[in-house]
Design a protein around this nucleic acid. Structure first.
Length: 427
RNA sequence: GCGGGCGUAGCGUAGCGGUUAACGCGUCUGGUUGUGGCCCAGAAGAUCGAGGGUUCGAACCCCUCCGCUCGCCCCA
């Protein structure tokens, strides 16, 4: 068994039974992005590794320990895309989108690769639905982008979700806050968990997010970023909240919300299930990243966006038992059992398909019984039977499969397509 | 990267030291002379995740690896 090939760790095959979920999500994405005026972009599956080192931040986990980096035969250092935003910003600059009408609203669905330890809902290859609005500093854009993602989930029948919202301010005031936070924690440093002592140096904002027992006593009295926003960020935040309220989006302020990428400023948000305690519950998140385009060598260009994990959306749909449309199976199944019938079978199937009727051709080397069993389990509504007698007479049997002991009629080849079409039309 | 649980035919499970590894679903073939769904019969399909060890003997005990899973880190 394990001598056989297996899909690489953390990857998965999307089998036919799961495809209807993907189709439903993709369809909903198409509709919701249309309603909000977004246009699709597709970027390559790999990019220069430096794009993410610069863009996402070279001390972030995503870049530091999760990137699939490789050197190609020409010596280029490339990375399989670990996240979408820097790639889209790269395309924005590369194609001079700054000279398009601003802001530019783009979306995509794109495979993402992270060398991480797999868990349910966390895969080494996953697919993100990404939306980015580049070239606007308006807080209304923040709210609109959040609303878009919220509407997507609504459209997919997901309830029990909530938006968690925070502002992490702009870089300079945030640095001032972080110093304040470190001052608060510093005296108690040796009573904190090992993880938190590490966070103190590497990512102090995470201190407030600790789940370790030993860290709990210090959390309540710690200064919260949301209470120390710069006047500009606070005003921005207020408009975002007003707009969300006006849009009817339920949200909850989460002073502990921290995102893992360096480029965010001001608005950050996540959409999470309210009734699932799993660690990998977050199904989408994003925020404002006014500094990123500049970091990548462009002009100062404010922007806002999110990434949403389609695999996680689908897990939520399945957990909530959301019904999805199954694609229709071919309504016609051709049973054939006659020496030399193959030409006629192909002709007749072709005629039906030309009329837009889907056809499954049976296995002529199996018994008629076996083929009819196949017809039945395929879900076909009509079986066309072509045996020795019919072939000799230039006719075919049209048999109704929709009920037990369904009737059948014999028609000349010339009338077959019309007869079948009429039956399907009226049924 | 750290810690816990699990791994038996395509799927779901039983067996937990001792002859040819069992059951359900599914698949295939039949139930006479060319006709499906229910029913009946039969067949195929598993070197019991892989490799090594303990033992007279291992699916069952031990070790390593692989995979899945839960928690942590982190993230979608």
């Amino acid at each position: 068994m394990s001598n056989r090939f297996q899909a690489p760790r953390g990857t998965q095959d999307v089998l036919p039974d799961a495809q209807p979920y993907w189709a439903a999500v993709n369809q909903a994405i198409l509709e919701v992005t249309r309603l909000f005026g977004f246009r699709r972009i597709d970027t390559p599956m790999f990019e220069p590794a430096a794009l993410f080192e610069k863009g996402s931040g070279d001390t972030t986990d995503v870049v530091e320990k999760e990137m699939y980096v490789f050197e190609d035969r020409g010596g280029e250092t490339l990375a399989l895309t670990p996240e979408g935003t820097p790639a889209i910003c790269r395309a924005y600059l590369e194609h001079g989108m700054a000279s398009w009408p601003q802001p530019v609203r783009l979306y995509t669905t794109h495979p993402m690769f992270r060398y991480d330890r797999p868990q349910k809902g966390r895969y080494r290859q996953h697919t993100q639905f990404d939306c980015e609005v580049i070239g606007s500093a308006s807080p209304l854009v923040d709210a609109e982008v959040i609303e878009l993602l919220w509407r997507l989930h609504q459209r997919l029948g997901l309830r029990n979700l909530e938006v968690r919202l925070a502002s992490i301010d702009d870089p300079a005031p945030r640095r001032a806050y972080v110093e304040r936070l470190k001052d608060y924690y510093r005296p108690n440093l040796d009573r904190l968990s090992e993880d938190s002592r590490r966070r103190f140096d590497r990512n102090p904002l995470r201190l407030l997010d600790s789940k370790d027992e030993r860290d709990q006593p210090y959390k309540d009295a710690a200064p919260k970023l949301i209470d120390h926003l710069s006047p500009e960020a606070a005003a921005h935040q207020q408009v975002v909240q007003d707009a969300l309220a006006a849009a009817g989006i339920p949200y909850r302020m989460d002073p502990l919300l921290v995102r893992g990428l360096d480029y965010y400023n001001r608005t950050v948000f996540e959409i999470v299930p309210t009734d699932d305690e799993r660690a990998q519950g977050t199904i989408g998140g994003g925020g404002r990243y006014d500094g990123l385009v500049e970091i990548l060598g462009g002009p100062h260009t404010p922007a806002m966006g999110f990434g949403s994990g389609i695999e996680r959306i689908i897990l939520e749909m399945q957990r909530n038992e959301v019904a999805v449309d199954e694609p229709e199976r071919p309504p016609v199944y051709v049973v054939h059992k006659a020496e030399g019938a193959h030409r006629k079978v192909v002709e007749l199937a072709g005629e039906l398909r030309a009329r837009g009727i889907a056809v499954t051709v049976g296995e002529g080397d199996r018994s008629m019984k076996a083929q009819l069993r196949g017809a039945n389990s395929s879900g076909a509504r009509i079986a066309i039977i072509l045996g020795e007698d019919e072939l000799a007479a230039g006719t075919a049997v049209v048999k109704d499969l929709t009920e037990v002991g369904g009737g059948q009629v014999t028609v000349p080849f010339g009338d077959l397509a019309a007869t079948v079409a009429a039956r399907l039309g009226s049924a």
